[in-house]
């Protein structure tokens, strides 16, 4: 599900509307009513329609602090154990923060060349919530894992501590690669993009207007021109979006990143990746 570029509140309202329609269209059982504060069943229908989602906990899990120190910057890892998933390759991961105003935080599309589908990122968490990761495999089947996180206020919190800096460095990127990687070995790359990722939920108390949402909505990563990963982002990703992923280049080459924000601004950068010694 690709969320539109309208403000967070607008998304929340249209999402509520969707829930109402779903509620009317599909009468709920008594059991469902008891768990009616759990948004997941409706979210699952809204995002994946009637597709079956199997328990993936034997080979995938989510790691996050049980209680976040800063709700605007919650580190999260979606980890896969390739040894426990023979023959399965991850094609897409959808990250859902159930109780956030924009629940779909990101969708990661992985190229088959990725040696390990494990992804790290940083998210905003608006209230105590379950977080779901749903992986679509190349055979078309869906698997999921979840984690519960205690944190509150991350969507409306102005994570931007130094706004003047944020404007001055808008769109700058940094790529970190471990220096001691050996040839043919997978290595973890960290991509960082300077962007305030305004959520659209911060209200100017004097004017009573919301500061407009402005966030990174697409990131394309290629290696020597071939797609490695693309990410659909949203306001639920933290300020200065951070993505960690695996890379296993056969030879020296160039990693290239193109990011686009919701105002249509495009940021590009490329880095030489040296041959491993």
């Amino acid at each position: 599900m690709r969320l539109s570029r309208t403000a967070c509140i607008g998304q929340a309202l249209s999402f509520l509307l969707l829930l109402v329609i779903l509620a009317v269209a599909a009468p709920r059982t008594a059991a469902a009513d008891e768990a009616s504060d759990d948004p997941w069943p409706d979210l699952q229908t809204a995002i994946f329609a009637d597709r079956q989602i199997a328990d993936g906990s034997s080979f995938m899990h989510l790691e996050a602090p049980a209680r976040a120190a800063d709700a605007a910057v919650v580190p999260l890892e979606i980890k896969f154990d390739p040894a426990q998933m023979p023959g399965l390759t991850v094609k897409t991961i959808t990250l859902v923060i159930d109780k956030n105003p924009a629940p779909v935080a990101a969708v990661f599309h992985l190229a088959a060349v990725m040696p390990d589908p494990s992804i790290g990122t940083r998210i905003r968490v608006n209230e105590y919530t379950n977080i779901h990761a749903v992986a679509e495999m190349t055979d078309g089947k869906l698997y999921m894992a979840k984690v519960f996180v205690k944190a509150a206020g991350g969507c409306s919190a102005p994570a931007v501590k130094t706004p003047a800096e944020a404007v001055a460095h808008l769109g700058e990127m940094k790529l970190k690669l471990p220096p001691d990687a050996t040839a043919g070995q997978a290595r973890r790359a960290q991509l960082m993009i300077r962007h305030p990722n305004f959520s659209g939920m911060q209200m100017d108390q004097v004017t009573r207007y919301y500061i407009p949402a402005k966030f990174i909505e697409a990131i394309d990563i290629t290696y020597d021109g071939k797609p490695l990963m693309s990410v659909e982002g949203n306001i639920s990703l933290s300020e200065n979006p951070f993505i960690e992923f695996s890379l296993k280049p056969d030879q020296a080459g160039e990693m290239s990143v193109t990011a686009r924000d919701s105002d249509g601004a495009v940021f590009k950068k490329a880095w030489p990746v040296p041959a491993s010694s």
Binding site: G153, S156, A157, V160, Q202, M203, Q205, V206, T207, I211
Partner: peptide
Amino acid sequence: LPRSLAARAGDYLAS
């Protein structure tokens, strides 16, 4: 101060 407070005031009042 006005800009930074404006962005945070809603949260500050609520908490």
